[in-house]
């Protein structure tokens, strides 16, 4: 295993998540959020375990770590059956690709394709 010390989304190393710092009011929500780099390293571990699909999901998760809670829920909602036209999904996919989220973009693009074939698009 690599010996990289994980850090939180805030950039704070994991060892600094101590009770003393909680007492001093130094920690915020971003200090307990997982960092995309950590997710990418976990993806490598999953790959090593022989589960490429789990690895892919963790890599998608690394992209999604950059999304805010609301936006994440909006995309999820748009992917539910009958919510979006195929064109709208393609548009969303483009937006995600432009923002450096190619794996999420690919998932949404694929959904656009399959939803129009299977009658799941709006």
């Amino acid at each position: 295993m690599e010996s990289v010390t994980p850090q939180a989304m805030s950039g704070r190393p994991i060892e600094e998540l101590t009770l003393a710092r909680v007492r001093a009011n130094e920690l915020t929500i971003d200090d307990i959020r997982i960092d995309p780099d950590t997710l990418l390293r976990q993806a490598e571990q999953a790959e090593r375990f022989g589960n490429g699909q789990l690895a892919e999901s963790l890599r998608r998760g690394a992209e999604m770590a950059m999304l805010g809670d609301e936006e994440l829920m909006e995309i999820y909602e748009a992917l539910r059956p009958g919510r979006s036209t195929a064109a709208r999904l393609r548009e969303m996919a483009e937006g995600l690709a432009v923002r450096g989220m190619p794996r999420c973009a690919e998932l949404v693009r694929e959904a656009a394709d399959v939803y129009s074939r299977c009658g799941l698009a709006r």
């Binding site: 997982i34 997710l39 999901s57 963790l58 998608r60 998760g61 690394a62 992209e63 999604m64 770590a65 999304l67 994440l72 995309i75 999820y76 992917l79 999420c104 998932l107 949404v108």
Partner: peptide, 9 residues
């Protein structure tokens, strides 16, 4: 699939 990755994120 999106939700699964959402939890991971």
């Amino acid at each position: 699939a999106f939700l699964v990755s959402g939890y991971a994120s």
